[in-house]
Structures are given as C-alpha cells and as structure tokens.
Nucleic acid binder design. Structure first.
Lengths: 208, 208
DNA sequence: ATAAACAGCGTACAAGTGTACGCTTAAATG
DNA sequence: CATTTAAGCGTACACTTGTACGCTGTTTAT
C-alpha cells in the first residue's frame, strides 16, 4: 500500500477546498456558491465532487474548520509577539488586522456564516469563536488576576469588538483609514479592560 | 383622480413587502429568496412583481428602509422610558431586547445584509446603523459631558456590543438564558461607559 | 496474474430561476 | 361616452442547479 491513490485523492480534495476559498469575495458568499462552480474551478466534472464531499455543506464545514485553525494560529502568533514585550492590546489588534489582510476570504466566511441560514454552519462558527473567546478569557484571568466571570465578560466583549472592526476593515481600502480604525479599536478595548479591572477589584473587596 | 387605482397599487405593494418579510427566518435569508416565491406568497403572478419593483434588490432596499424606521422607533421608545427615570443602560438594553423579540425578522435582515454580498445592501445597512450610532453619540456627549471623539468611540462600541448580543438572543429560546445574556450585556456596556468617562476626564485635564 | 476497488467523466433529467411579450379588464382621462 | 393607461395574468424561453447512472482506466489486493 504505497498510497499513490490516497495521496492523489487528498490532492484533489485540497483542490476543491482551495477552489471554494478562492471564489469567496466581498460579492460572493459560500451560500451562493454552487457545487458546479466549485467543481469547475477545481478542474473537475461536477459529479466528481461527490467522491470527496457528499454535499456543499460538508465542504463548508471543512472550511469552517480551516478558519478555526487560522484563528488558533493568530492566537499563537500574538502570544509570541507579546512575550517580546509591548502593549498587549496594541499587539493583538495589529496581529489581527494583519491576519485579515492576508486571509480576508476565510475571515469573511466566519462573519457571514455566523448569522447564516444553515444551523450546522452557525453552530460550527459559534463553536470556533467560543473556543477563541475562552482562550482569551483564561489569558486575561491569569495575566490580570481577574475574577473568573469578569474575565469572561471582558473576553466576550473584546472578541465582539475586534471581530466587528475586522469586518469593517475588510471594506476599507485606504491604508490610513484602516490605521485609524485600528487605533479606535485599541482605545475601545482599553475602555473595556479598564471597566473590567474595576469591577473585578470591587468584587474582591466585597468578599473580604 | 379619486385614487382608487393608486390605493390598490399601494396595497399590493405592501402585500409584497410583507410577503418577503414573512418568509424571512433563521433558515431563510433575503438573498436566497426568489422573486417567484415572494410573488406567490403575496398571491401574485411572478411577472406582476415588476409592476412594483424592478428587482429583488429594490424590494430589499425597501426592507432595509423599513428596518431603519424600526430602529428609530426603538430609540424614541427608549428615550421616553429613560425620561421616567431608571438606569439608562438597563432600560436601553431591555428595550432593545423587546424589539428583537417582536421584530426578529427585520433585525435579522440588518445583521445579515451588513456582511452580505450586495454592495448596495451593505451600504444601506451601514448607513442606518451609522445614523443610529450618531444619535447615541450625541446623547452620550450631552448627557455625560464627554469629549466628542470619546463619545463617538463609546457609542460605536456600545452599538457593536448590543447588536451582537441581539444576534445571539435570536438563537436563544430559554427565557432565563436570554435574561442572563441581557445582564451580561448591561455589564459590558458599563465597562465601556466607565472607560470612556475616564479617558474623557483625562483629556479635559490635559487641556487645562 | 487476476480480480476488486474506486477516482473521474459524460450524459441525462427534473426542478427552479429571471424575465420578455402580448392579452384582459377596470380605472383614469378627455 | 370614447379613449388611454396600467395592474395583473399566462405562456414561453433560455439558463442554472443538484444529482442518478453507467462507463473507463488505473491502482490496490489477492
């Protein structure tokens, strides 16, 4: 079992995934992408699609997984940069904005399918975002000595703000405008961090 | 010109609008709604649709207008309640959550088309939300004596948080869970308010 | 060496789409 | 009253969609 066959299969599976990803854009969402178009882009006959996915939905869920992976890469990269010193918030936002610039399509997928029409998709996207939020919560709780619940609320708010800013950034061409958006986002995250720190302190004081 | 004809026309136009609105749901977005389906739901022949709208896009933009109207109603209602005393943030969130419960479909439309595939739609939705944000900014600036830019950042963050919570609320059936979400949202808005107030104070002090 | 498995293709079909065109019928206009 | 206007309908057409089915050629298993 040299695996020549399996290897080839994996290769064209990848072709399909990339074909779908490449067709995504501001004016093209996954949900109005047809099986035939994806197959065509991948250089396959429409019916060959079924050798790899039973459905467009199945392909879509694979893409969401891919997006989750990207999100985790983001988190890791931000951590590495933070370890070298500097403002945590600033570095995080900057890293996030870089990701959006280089992976706009996959990020669009997440944003759109989060409020999309397929329950399975919504669930998958929400799961990825929740995972991301929880990781941030753990970090905040430990790094800032926060009350657990407060840390969650901060993480949740921060993710919401950053994702929303990311969505806006996708529609902005001008470099200066994007920088301005980033600065605003940083300030907003600081608002939240400040409020969270205070509440956490108040809770600790109350318990004593 | 008694207007019997014009009156009837307006009536079936309304029929089309309502037909579209009624077909929206968690699993049905405007963009995958066909002209034929809308016409059928309204009890019209497909081709009669064109007597009222040249396009599904035109109908869609009308719906966005409708949503903007709803948003302004919301703002007015919240103001009335606030005038009678109570926590501004709490009342606002509660009013918003009530709106979502009674107008889920129109709210879904806004959320979805904001990151949808039609540039015209996106622009229209963003315009409505910006209008809403600006009104909140003016209120915050005046009521809390804030620096103008800080007031904008607070308003922007608050709208983002509330809309995101609204989107989540649409997927929650359990009454208690929704209440919990509301409480969390209130707390997050307080984080932001606190951070904004501080920055505004700091800026004022710096200028003196 | 022989047989089985299987990725990929071409054909074919039913279903649904937007919309052009001409007709009918009732209101508006003169 | 006579004429024009226009909302609504039915038919028709060209497309696109998902997918069922059977064939081919190559890799894998025996």
């Amino acid at each position: 079992m040299s695996g020549v066959r399996a290897q080839q299969k994996e290769k064209t599976r990848r072709l399909l995934i990339d074909a779908a990803l490449n067709q995504l854009s501001a004016e093209r969402s996954f949900s109005n992408l047809s099986l035939r178009e994806v197959a065509k882009e991948a250089g396959l006959a429409p019916t060959s699609f079924y050798r790899h996915f039973s459905d467009m939905d199945e392909l879509g869920l694979t893409l969401v997984d891919e997006a989750g992976l990207t999100l985790r890469q983001l988190m890791r990269q931000a951590r590495q940069r933070i370890a070298k010193g500097g403002s945590v918030i600033q570095i995080s936002v900057q890293t996030f904005m870089e990701l959006i610039e280089s992976n706009g399509n996959i990020f669009r997928l997440l944003l759109r399918e989060r409020s999309g029409t397929s329950a399975a998709f919504r669930a998958a996207v929400i799961r990825e975002i929740r995972y991301f939020t929880m990781e941030l919560r753990d970090y905040l709780q430990q790094a800032n000595q926060l009350d657990a619940e407060v840390a969650y609320m901060q993480a949740n708010a921060a993710v919401t703000i950053v994702f929303s800013a990311g969505s806006d950034a996708l529609d902005i061409d001008d470099k200066n405008e994007r920088e301005q958006l980033a600065q605003q986002t940083i300030q907003q995250l600081r608002f939240i961090a400040r409020g969270a720190a205070e509440l956490s302190d108040r809770r600790k004081a109350g318990k004593k």
